[in-house]
């Protein structure tokens, strides 16, 4: 008895080992691009699920263009920092990991800040302190630590792109909604980002004498954010329920067959 059980256990262990090895081998051959994309954009969205980088998210989303500007800046920093950290991960020892990551991130943020100052001066002024504050956006150090320091460079860069995109989409959603509700405009200040020709992009959707203050001020961002998170959770729950229903149906059929 004991012999058989131990051999069984050993067999089990071998099975588990095989299971563990096989997907690993696959992961190196075939990168699960769509999986990474899904993680960044939906399942593990930095703004909606991880709730990282809320400070800039809430402060800068008063207009669509501000949101776009900060979104692009954050995305750029995320991609480049993820790529760099993944490239240097083998040289960095465990003890100095965090300072090195922060140094890399801070350097790239400073570079992005200088470039924005030089090429999109108006936007630089309107985003103000929130560009240098990208350094403290936990989404970036979080990805560096959780993903980039453990995965090959290409995967890490793609993860940065998708996480950045997920963050930007939420920024845009919130920025657009707050601008429309608060000021009745969309793309206000587009010339700050794209140059003078973009002034024609700005349009007034509706006009009111008094701005809707709640949407313009930070509390509006909190409320809007709440709605977006609620919406995401609703969709997730719906999907989960559908899956459950499907599973239940399958089980019923199985029972039917057994009974027959």
């Amino acid at each position: 008895m004991t012999n058989t059980t131990t051999s069984g256990e050993i067999n089990d262990n071998e099975d588990i080992d095989n299971d563990l090895i096989e997907p690993k081998a696959n992961a190196f051959k075939l990168v699960d691009w769509s999986g990474i994309a899904k993680e960044g954009l939906w399942k593990n969205n930095p703004a909606l699920v991880q709730l990282l980088g809320l400070c800039p998210l809430l402060a800068v989303t008063n207009t669509f263009i501000n949101a776009l500007g900060l979104g692009i800046a954050t995305m750029l920093v995320l991609i480049v920092s993820n790529l760099t950290i993944s490239l240097v991960k083998d040289w960095v020892t465990k003890e100095i990991r965090i300072p090195v990551f922060i140094m890399i991130i801070a350097s790239f943020v400073t570079i992005v800040e200088l470039l924005m100052n030089a090429y999109t001066y108006g936007l630089y002024l309107s985003l103000g302190i929130f560009i240098p504050l990208i350094v403290t956006n936990c989404a970036i150090i979080g990805r560096a630590e959780a993903y980039a320091s453990r995965n090959p460079p290409l995967n890490a860069a793609f993860d940065g792109l998708m996480m950045g995109l997920g963050f930007t989409v939420i920024l845009l959603l919130l920025g657009g909604a707050r601008e429309i509700i608060g000021q009745g405009t969309l793309f206000d200040g587009a010339h700050l980002l794209f140059g003078e020709w973009a002034r024609t992009l700005e349009f007034q959707i509706f006009h009111f004498d008094q701005q809707f203050l709640l949407a313009v001020l930070p509390p509006g961002a909190f409320i809007g954010m709440g709605f977006i998170i609620a919406g995401k959770n609703y969709l997730d729950n719906k999907e989960l329920e559908e899956q459950k229903n499907k599973a239940a149906k399958k089980v019923e059929r199985a029972r039917v067959t057994t009974v027959n």
């Binding site: 240097v88 040289w91 960095v92 020892t93 100095i96 300072p99 090195v100 140094m103 890399i104 801070a106 350097s107 400073t110 570079i111 200088l114 470039l115």
Partner: peptide, 16 residues
Amino acid sequence: LLSAFAAVCTLLVSLT
């Protein structure tokens, strides 16, 4: 290592 990283990062920022 840390000094090396600091030097490289500073160099990049200075160049920009």
